[in-house]
């Protein structure tokens, strides 16, 4: 019979946004389960370091994997950072500026085509009107996005998705020499779970040298049909951290 360890300290690092359903599940599963479960929603890498320094036995990580471009070779772990008010208004104003400039440019292009381009080769080829129509469709889409930016609610947070930098794992490695290093298990749910350790050699070394057990999220059946490996979160998977 397995004896539940009441002194096990579990850190749940949910790098997802507050409004995401994973956050709701995390809250449901770990709410009122005692102080041995510490939950960080919209977590930061610093929270991970904090957990390790405070003697966490198990760390549960829910993160995105980021490939900057499809063919990119390195897939890193990512997290959402809520933008501070100055960055938020700067971004919104940049977006506003971008969309209005683009709209003006497209209007000009459509006007030019409709007036001077009538006798062009494009029209002769019967593609002229199709091209204008496609521009108009693009313009409509752009205008919708412009209005969304204009009407963006004041109280709605804006995020940027950022890469977890390797430095945090260097710091963990340094901390591992301290007396209260107890980390035994990492449970991680992210896309491309086998690749996300590649840019973090310090984390790999830490796992190997301390024999930290790694358990991935649920690999859905869909993986079999997909070109991409994913390890997802389910409530059952989260609950496994409660069953000791």
């Amino acid at each position: 019979m397995k004896v539940r360890n009441f002194f096990l300290f579990v850190c749940v690092l949910n790098f997802e946004r507050q409004a995401h359903f994973y956050t709701q599940w995390v809250n449901e599963v770990f709410a009122n389960k005692g102080s041995q479960y510490r939950v960080y929603n919209e977590a930061t890498p610093a929270n991970w370091l904090e957990c390790i320094q405070q003697g966490a036995d198990e760390v549960v990580v829910i993160a995105h994997s980021l490939a900057i471009k499809d063919g990119g070779k390195v897939i890193s772990l990512g997290y959402y950072r809520q933008l501070e008010p100055p960055q938020r208004s700067e971004l919104l104003s940049k977006a506003h500026q971008y969309f209005s400039t683009e709209l003006e440019r497209m209007d000009q292009e459509i006007r030019d085509l409709e007036t001077s381009g009538r006798n062009s080769f494009e029209r002769h080829q019967n593609r002229y009107q199709d091209y204008i129509n496609s521009l108009k469709i693009q313009r409509r889409d752009l205008e919708a996005r412009f209005h969304r930016v204009e009407a963006f609610p004041e109280d709605k947070p804006l995020y940027e998705i950022s890469t977890i930098l390797p430095k945090i794992f260097q710091r963990m490695k340094e901390s591992s020499k301290a007396g209260n290093f107890k980390w035994k298990k990492l449970r991680i749910a992210a896309c491309n779970p086998d690749k996300v350790f590649e840019p973090y050699p310090e984390l790999r070394e830490l796992i190997q040298s301390h024999g930290i057990e790694v358990e991935y999220g649920v690999r859905p059946l869909l993986n079999y049909f997909s070109s991409e490996e994913t390890a997802i979160v389910t409530k059952g998977w989260l609950e496994k951290s409660l069953r000791r």
Partner: peptide, 12 residues
């Protein structure tokens, strides 16, 4: 065919 398309889309 991708199941991680959302994460990719959100990558800036």
């Amino acid at each position: 065919g991708g199941t991680c398309a959302l994460a990719k889309e959100e990558t800036p």
